[in-house]
Design a protein around this nucleic acid. Structure first.
Length: 226
DNA sequence: AATTTAGGCAACCGCCTGATG
DNA sequence: GCATCAGGCGGTTGCCTAAAT
């Protein structure tokens, strides 16, 4: 059975927001907050669905929105993170790293500017911290794999050992994203059920690496649950 | 000056996930 | 365990504007 649509289309307005609608939404949220987006338009007297109100607020009206051109630093962060995360678990996560920027804005900026530059090879030397740490010519990455016992050729055994994973094909066969290279730092190991778990070494590598660590953990769990 | 094309971006759509009953 | 709701997210569309012809 099909889900009921998020909003009743009949009588609800679509398309660009008018300044009057913006003002109504801002005033309402400033007075009452936005606890329930679905109920908000009715309470505020707007002929919009809750989703539309939420999007308008988050992407345009929020007071902490930063508008204007992206800085070089912001570009670098987007490119680096996109390399790691890809489109699929990325824009919102990247947005958390760029205060005042929205996922929609970052997504648009990627598709209209950065994607072309990356495709043209203008940013090909941009590496994430793991790649930088390993060096571009590194033979592989080291992981603690107590239960898997996978050697560099991909063969399995019951032996608990540190494993050097030599190439991307092995990673892809095991459905592990390349960022598993964090294991190079000794910050990752896996438990008996095959789930990646943390040890405490990542706490010593600073805020930036903490961020990348969390990024890895999220990415890994998403990548392995399928 | 008029028309066409391309780029930029706001907004919508549909799917997914977590919470709740 | 299942159905439904609500919020969140990425993909995509379509409008607007500036540049090119």
């Amino acid at each position: 059975m099909a889900r009921t649509p998020c909003c009743e289309k009949m009588g609800l307005k679509k398309g660009p927001w008018t300044p009057e609608e913006d003002q109504i939404l801002i005033s309402h949220i400033q007075r009452y907050g936005h606890g329930n987006w679905r109920a908000l338009p009715k309470q505020a007297g707007l002929l919009r669905c809750g989703k539309s109100c939420r999007l308008r607020w988050i992407n345009y009206l929020r007071p902490d929105i930063k508008r204007g051109k992206f800085s070089k630093e912001e570009e670098d962060i987007i490119i680096k993170l996109h390399r790691v995360l890809g489109n699929r678990c990325g824009w919102a996560t990247i947005a958390t790293r760029l205060p005042g920027r929205t996922d929609n804005e970052i997504k648009n900026f990627w598709h209209t500017h950065l994607k072309k530059r990356v495709e043209r090879g203008e940013v090909q030397n941009m590496m994430n911290p793991f790649e930088e740490a390993q060096g571009a010519s590194s033979a592989g990455i080291l992981m603690n794999m107590p239960q898997v016992g996978v050697d560099a050729s991909g063969a399995t055994s019951s032996v608990t050992e540190k494993v050097l994973i030599a190439n991307d094909s092995l990673l892809s066969r095991r459905n592990i994203p390349p960022i598993v290279g964090l294991g190079f730092y000794g910050a990752v190991s896996s438990n008996v059920s095959g789930e990646i778990i943390a040890n405490n070494s990542h706490s010593e590598i600073g805020e930036e690496m903490e961020f990348w660590y969390n990024m890895f953990m999220n990415n890994h769990h998403k990548g392995t649950k399928m």
